[in-house]
Nucleic acid binder design. Structure first.
Lengths: 153, 153
DNA sequence: CCAGGAAAGAAGACATGTCAACTACCGGGG
DNA sequence: CCCCGGTAGTTGACATGTCTTCTTTCCTGG
């Protein structure tokens, strides 16, 4: 049995980690509340945004999950719920009969068009516009570094 | 009806925001999986850690929610579940009969003592140790700035 | 070709989080 | 003193997320 003294976090490290988590939580909550006025959850928005950016407004379920960092079953459940509400549709993939595309419906297109300006404005006012370009760039470096190092999974 | 052209995010801004969210999601998932071996969820860990740090290992529910950035009903539900499992106990506050303290039980103490080294090690290996002190400091600045600016709620 | 492992999703059971009441209690201004 | 708006926490309904298992289909080494 091998022991190694744990290297606890320094005060600075602990503070930064705590504040980062707190920030994320509060921002997500804020964005969620803000979108509720448009009848969307933040998660709905992310899915719709992912589809908007994609060629033909359609993405494979797995690909979507990969972009958002969601488990495949989370994607499946959430897309099903959105399908019930008419925001997206599922279309079988012709070249791989196991898979499907998620496609933006007209209703989904309307929904995100209505929600996007307010959403982006909120992200700006409570996040982006509070920071310097250097800070934003550092943030991107940090996130990339951490993500690159992550176990594949 | 007043319109203002939406200032969309630049590519850099969008990327940073996306990567940040992705990082947070993946890190939380990783930490959660890692703690599962010890029979705790990440949320359980956060509560136990909050209690460990507190004088007498006890904290008012509201105070705990405030530290973690949780809604009061989330705190209530989660603490109740942890109470069922014997990790914490609730004690009525003598000076304010509306409120209660959450207290660390012996079992809770054992649980966090067992989990903490592995948890901290994971935070180090997948986050802290990948970054320079300057980056960590910038991160703290950013989070503070954003948090300070947030609507009270 | 063809067996068997890997990938795409779906589905169900269950854990977790949110929202909107609701109860009980506090504390201050008539 | 008492009314009343605010605060602490609980509760139940419901939305969301996770884990595991299952089916179907794909693909590759023999």
């Amino acid at each position: 049995m091998c022991h190694m003294a744990t290297r606890w976090l320094s005060d600075d490290e602990r503070e930064a980690w705590k504040h980062l988590n707190l920030m994320q939580l509060q921002l997500n909550a804020l964005l969620g509340r803000e979108l509720a006025d448009d009848g969307l959850s933040y998660q709905d928005y992310l899915v719709l945004a992912g589809l908007s950016d994609a060629p033909d407004n359609r993405v494979r379920l797995t690909e979507l999950g990969c972009q958002l960092g969601w488990e495949k079953s989370r994607v499946s459940h959430h897309v099903s719920r959105m399908e019930q509400r008419g925001l997206v549709a599922k279309v079988k993939c012709p070249t791989d009969r196991r898979g499907s595309f998620v496609v933006l419906t007209d209703e989904g297109r309307r929904a995100i068009a209505a929600a996007a300006p307010g959403h982006v404005d909120t992200v700006r006012r409570h996040f982006i516009d509070l920071l310097t370009p250097e800070q934003i760039s550092t943030l991107d470096d940090i996130a990339r570094t951490v993500l690159d190092h992550l176990p594949k999974r």
